[in-house]
Structure formats: structure tokens, C-alpha cells
Nucleic acid binder design. Sequence first.
DNA 1: ACAGCCATATATTCGGACCG
DNA 2: CGGTCCGAATATATGGCTGT
Length: 303
Amino acid sequence: MKDFDLNLLRVLVVLHRTRSVSKAAAALGLSQPATSLALGRLRKALDDPLFVRSPAGMLPTPRGTELANAAAGALSDFSVHAQSEPTFDPATSRRDFVVTTPDVGELQLLPPLMAYLAREAPHCNLRSEPFATADVEAALEDGRCDLAFGLFPNLERPALYTQQILKQTIVCLVRADHPTVQSSRISMRRFLELSHAVVHPVGRSQELFEALLKEKGYTRRVQLKTAHFLSLPSIIAVTDMIATVPRSIADYYTRLENLRIVELPIGIKPAPIRQFWHPRFHTDPAVRWLRESVARLFGTVEA
DNA sequence: ACAGCCATATATTCGGACCG
DNA sequence: CGGTCCGAATATATGGCTGT
């Protein structure tokens, strides 16, 4: 079937309708022999006579009728799709969306997005899938993933389309009644004297911060290194450690625990949080609706 | 026997691949 | 980049079958 000439489908359909090779040829705009040859190829490919000569014309075999109906259905189905503009109707669609974002991104993206989906696209589901960083681009290309959201320095290249959604700044967190850090500011000297809790290696903005400290020659004691953000606020709230986290995470933590935000003692450029999609899906109505919804939720202007 | 129709053999054209 | 060659597809010509 893999090298079946799809032009033959039209020939099959018209032959079945006209019951004549000559009439089919005229209808198809081919010569009679060309049509005869096409019928020969159909017979060989489908392994059935398909039509037999009779006084009443070329009568279809049962298989011929079955396949001609299937071909007619396929062609008309295709033509419906080819002629209608592709659309996405959020109110009725049952599309399942797939996004990939680190946990920090999830905390920023999913609360507003899920509330929006529930309201605007009530039958659509969303899956947040943690693709390996190296696999994200391929997943976006082959459609396993609709959108990547977050800080992906390795994705910022022409192969993908991107749009900046937010700026990620980072801040420090200590417990609200910390014995030595009592204001919202801290000197670099005191910052380096404290014991640190570091989330590693998940947060890419933290990686940038770590690189900056190293570059400036600052060293400090990392008393706790963990791979997850989940346990961090409870730990900081009962110790004298200081943690450096994205501001969105810090804002969330201070609502949960007895914590206080302290500005970083060093200037660092805010990191761009972007959404990424593949050019293949640039005009796909569903993916387009999703990324425009994300942009709208965060009040982003097209860049 | 002849007319109508399909199948087959031969000719032509067109597009694409290959090579200098 | 242009020319040549090859193959695919279609057209033309012809042959063969069938029914009246």
C-alpha cells in the first residue's frame, strides 16, 4: 500500500459511477487507454478484477463497490477539510493540551491558566509533562508538546518561536523572626556569613545566580542542597538559613509560612520567562489559541 | 458482419536526476 | 548553471472481444 498512487482513488470512484472506462476517461479528462491502464493498476494493487464487462457496462464486483465507496468517502472527507478554514472553538473543543515547564513555571502558569481553561475551554484538558531539557525541542517539533514555558536558555534559537511573558527576578528568604536579618535588605558580608539552602539543579535562574557568585569570587556555606522547592519554606521557617529563590516562589512561600523576603545584596539581570513553540504549529488554531491565552493572562504585548 | 468498447503496443512529451 | 539522459505518464494507433 505504501506506493499506492492516490490518483487511482478518483479513477476508481468515477469508474464506479459511470460504469464505463470511456465515460470515466472523459469525466476524468484522460484518454480512454490511460483510464484503462489506471484500472489495470487498480486491479493489480487491490488484487481484484473490480469491474467485469457485461452488456450493461462495466459492472463492479462486490469488492469494487466496497472500495469505491471507501474511496469516495475518503475523498469527500478530505475535501471538506481542505475547503474549510481550520478553526478551534474553545467552548466545544475536547483538545488535550500538553505543556512543559519546570515546577517554578508551573506555579506561575497553571493557576491562572487552569482557571482560564475551566472558564473558556471547559472540555479541554491540560497535561504538564516534564520533558528532559534536551528533548523539549524535539517534543515541540513532533507535537508531543504544544508549548514550553519558562527559562530555557538552550531553546533560544531561530528553530523555535518565542515570546517573552515575564521577567524572573530572584530574592532571598529568611524566617520572619530571624535573629540577625531583621530588615528587607542585607549586606553582602552578612549574606556570605549565613548558612545557605540551595535548590539544585532544578532552578535555572538559580544556576545563573550561582554562576555570578562564582565569577565574583564569593564563597559561602551551603548547608542544605535539595532538588525540590516543596520542602524549602518549612525548612527556612524553622532554621537560620537563607535561601535564594525566584520572586514568584518567594511570594507564594511567605503566604504559607512565617517567612520574610530580603532583597539580594547584588544586582542580577532579571531572566526572561518565555513561551516557546515550533514553527510547524504557528498557524495551528488550537496551539495558537493556547499561546495567545497565555500571553493575554500575563498581559504581554506581542514582541 | 459490423459497431461499440476495452486492452495492448507504440510514440511522444514532460519533469527530474545526474554530470560536466 | 546548463545540457543530456532516463523514466513515467499520457496520447495515438491498433487489435480483439461481444452483442446485435
